[in-house]
């Protein structure tokens, strides 16, 4: 087991060090033969907002129902985390240990803590997905206005800033493995947009670094939630399944959706070693053990 692990790391190092020619990362290097999706929780109307904490427990939101935010611990036990809260479309723990969530229907971003009322971080916007940086900055997408915003909680009143605009339907948002680059998926078009994060948190040098496969050229990509693994590959939920890309933006492949007829909207690595990919797929949460591993930003 130990050798196997080292071999994996060494192989990854060899592949990466070969730089230009190699670094070809196929699905085979991620998927485990014989492993498939297993249902974790089902029977909801619509679930979303997959996230993990700093020990690998998994969280999701019963978006349309009354189940609130649930926790699935690393042993698989399901419990209530924040009961009753609805309409949470994205969540992530911040470096302060609070759970930040998008609650678009209430036009706000909230910080949650079990047993406390939601702390409203910002209101009057319609957030879809968010990411929190190690500095505590929040970036979120507002799909309807085609914008990406940044919040610096340390700056009082005028802390809400538009940092990107004119993306057809900005949806998923995630940081690169090293936190230096911001990725935004587009629910309409095929592009995954890459931005450099500047010192003040503003974004620069946008480019359509990776492209999703489309069902046909006229179908929306339905690019949605994203996750990044420890070596910098990124995974995007979409119309056609979970699309995986290598760190240089080349598509590695498409992983089947557990239920192809239902929306695949959110993805995260969780588990004791972040060795499971969890997805929210319509009425149910599924997970799948993989060879790649997620990473902790703190």
């Amino acid at each position: 087991m130990m050798y196997a692990k080292h071999f994996g790391n060494l192989l990854a190092a060899v592949l990466l060090s070969c730089g230009c020619f190699a670094g070809d990362i196929s699905l085979e290097q991620v998927l485990i033969e014989g492993e498939s999706w297993e249902k974790v929780v089902g029977g909801m109307k619509f679930c979303d907002a997959c996230c993990t904490d700093n020990v690998g427990n998994f969280y999701y939101s019963d978006f349309s129902g009354r189940g609130g935010i649930k926790k699935v611990d690393i042993t698989g036990k399901v419990s209530d985390y924040i009961p009753g809260i609805a309409g949470i479309s994205a969540m992530q723990f911040g470096p302060d240990g609070r759970l930040y969530g998008c609650q678009g229907r209430n036009r706000r971003i909230v910080a949650l803590k079990p047993g406390f009322a939601p702390d409203i971080i910002v209101s009057g916007i319609r957030p879809n997905d968010l990411v929190v940086t190690v500095e505590g900055h929040i970036y979120f997408t507002e799909t309807s206005t085609r914008r990406v915003y940044q919040i610096n909680p340390k700056q009082g009143g005028s802390r809400l800033k538009i940092v990107a605009k004119d993306i057809a339907k900005p949806n998923g948002i995630v940081l690169s493995a090293d936190g230096g680059t911001l990725l935004v998926s587009d629910h309409m078009d095929k592009e995954i947009w890459f931005f450099r994060i500047e010192k003040d948190g503003s974004l620069s040098f946008r480019s359509p670094y990776a492209s999703l496969r489309l069902r046909t050229r006229h179908h929306p990509s339905k690019g949605d939630g994203m996750a990044v693994d420890a070596i910098g590959c990124f995974y995007v939920t979409s119309d056609l399944g979970l699309q995986m890309f290598d760190p240089t933006g080349r598509m590695s492949g498409v992983i089947h959706s557990p239920q192809p007829g239902k929306p695949l909207v959110s993805v995260v690595f969780a588990g004791k070693q972040l060795e499971y990919i969890y997805v929210a797929n319509g009425d149910a949460v599924y997970r799948r053990k993989v060879k790649s591993k997620g990473l902790m930003h703190w």
Partner: peptide
């Protein structure tokens, strides 16, 4: 495209 964040890797544009 060099990263600004300390220790972060540049965005390699070769394939793009």
């Amino acid at each position: 495209i060099p990263a600004v964040k300390e220790g972060a890797k540049p965005r390699k544009n070769r394939s793009f």
